[in-house]
Amino acid sequence: MKNNLKNNKTNANIYIPLNGKIEEITQLTGDVRLFKIKTETPIDYVPGQFFMLSVWGAGEVPISVASLPEKNGTIELCIRKTGIVTSAIHSLKTGQSIGLRGPYGNGFPIDISKGRDVILVAGGIGIAPLRPLIQQFIKNHRKAGKVTLLYGSRTPDEIIFRDEVEEWEESGIAVALTVDKGNDNWKGNVGLVTGLWPEVRTDFKEAVAYICGPDVMIKAAMRDLFFLGMPDERIITTLEAHMKCGVGKCGHCYIGPQYICTDGPVFSYKEIKEQSILK
């Protein structure tokens, strides 16, 4: 997938993080928080790109942007506590500084969705990278195409952006939620997100899909959509990998001949098949 932004061709040391300030922290679910970070000068980025966030003493971690760029230079990043670095980020408080490098990666291709229906498939924290896409679709007042969001979580309590999902619905996005395991208050669907295909009132052959979630879910969703007649190059996903540099040097995210960080993280099903990326 081609890069939407030009490479930084300066001589500056690409490994030096910029200083960001945490403006706001929102607890979304038990282990997920949304961090609003302000940089001194606004940084331009597109949905699907990521930043290397760094906490000194703990290390760096790649996090996809969860918002559209703002003129005042704030970036929203949605972070689940899973390892050493993310735990360190969670221990930070409003007003404290955090390092960030980026944006890196190619970002979602938006043009291909022009005049087409859009299906968004999210699993768990996978909703975060899709959030700016949704925001963009709402912002552009898409009239031509219909946007459908299929979103699966583990439990009802782990549905991230639950309030926003309602807002999105109000703005005209068709939403179908499901959980792996319900509770007493849950009256919605229970099961895999790929069980929600019947909810989509769209011609699969003409639509575009953006998928983000765990590898198993991505694989299943892509296979299903392909089977349902969607062309390879319009099935878009974003992948996750172990990364240390974010700029195609450290080698950790190398899969096939591709680096997830520089050639991705957004790939079409076509690329994934040709380069045998997801095995």
Partner: peptide, 12 residues
């Protein structure tokens, strides 16, 4: 608990 698996053939 799984919702019944989808009949992709029918959807297609």
């Amino acid at each position: 608990r799984r919702i019944p698996s989808v009949d992709l053939e029918a959807l297609r």
